[in-house]
Amino acid sequence: MAIAHRALSAFARMAAVVGALGVMTAPAVHAAEALHPHKIDWTFDGPLGSFDQASVQRGFQIYKEVCAACHTLDHLTYRNLGEKGGPFVASGRLNAATGAWEDVKLGPPHHGGKLVPAADNPFVRAIAAEYQITEIDPTTGQEVTRPARPSDRFVSPYTNPYEAKAIHGVAPPDLSVIIKARHDGSNYVHSLLTGYVDPPEGEQPPGGAANLSYNPYFPGGWISMPPQLLPDRVAYTDGTPATPDQMARDVVSFLTWASDPKAAERKQTGLAVLIYLTILAGLLYAAYRQVWRDVKH
């Protein structure tokens, strides 16, 4: 991206600025109004909502087996998956003699066990090891490949930033914060993934492009992403039927977690802070009544 940015000709930039002014002064172009996404009762909605971890785990599987072919997830590292609130957080017992973790189980520590640091988390290590990192060996100056470690960022399917656009016509957006980058993000992405239909009669893709699909939830209707979640697109290991709706719910749960991995911690802290402040405000009000009790005002 960096180089592309720099290489932009001055002309292109001026054109973009003129475009922006057009937006302000010219009458708005009435593109086909996108449909409003349908509402889903997400478990993570609201101040007390939390993630259904099984769903986030299945969502990761969808991301890995389907979306990752085209989409990057640049802001995530593999260790994030095993950190507090992550889908592959694990607990176990540290053997002081060997320094190894024993009885490691998926899930946060409930009874006795301890949270396994993400770097030692075997589930995370296994996921990372499925990917190869290409880098320069500083001692030889030669390109080498090695399996990814938990500290590595999610590996991109592309070798350079231009490839994405060259292959798909439109560069598929990075999905790290996609849920936050769309209005009503979770509902929108669910509707988008399950909302492909035949185009209305007489509706033609712009410029007659053959590689566009019709999706009424996408602004403008024509999208460069073909339908992805056809029935049984993946085989779930926990026996959940892989219906399009279920797969969309799972991948959206995963992406919502990925857009804000600190959400659980944030809500938990927030609850304590609000309780504390309510008590404080109450006490201060009582103090105020006491101080002013004999003063007419």
């Binding site: 201060l284 103090a287 105020y288």
Partner: peptide, 8 residues
Amino acid sequence: VKDLVSVA
């Protein structure tokens, strides 16, 4: 004290 109530 009034400021503190409001601030809280």
